[in-house]
Amino acid sequence: MSLLKWCFKKSLWVFHFAASPCNNCDIEILDLLTPRWDIERFGMKLVGSPRHADVLLLTGSINKKIAPKVKEVYEQTAKPCIVAALGSCGCSMGIFDTEVNYNRAGPADNVIPIDIYIPGCPPKPEAMIMALVKAINKL
């Protein structure tokens, strides 16, 4: 297998950023670190800078104010990286996808290219782990 695929096989470092979220998905992501699910046993951890990340986890329905920052962070991330859109808001703007929303700039794939979509409101931690496993297997 290629060097790239080998690098992404395990111990993915995740940079989580929230663009206009309701915070629920973010809480469930932090839940993954806690003793019940404990993704750190797979070597996965949350990092503090996009430059150290293998996976970019994007939550929230993006609004006009934060869309330029999302692009900036994507450009700063070391390529290659996997970009995952988490939650109904990340995949399709969910309940905020109406004409009446004057501040909309999403969904996430309008702003940056997305590789993985994880739907749910919020997606349960088990669903998130399954999504990452599926993604790794596909690589």
Binding site: S20, S61, N63, I66, V100, N101, Y102
Partner: peptide, 13 residues
């Protein structure tokens, strides 16, 4: 304002 999602307008519709 990074989270402003026009909720007041959405609920009124």
């Amino acid at each position: 304002g990074w989270n402003h999602r026009a909720i007041e307008k959405i609920t009124a519709s």
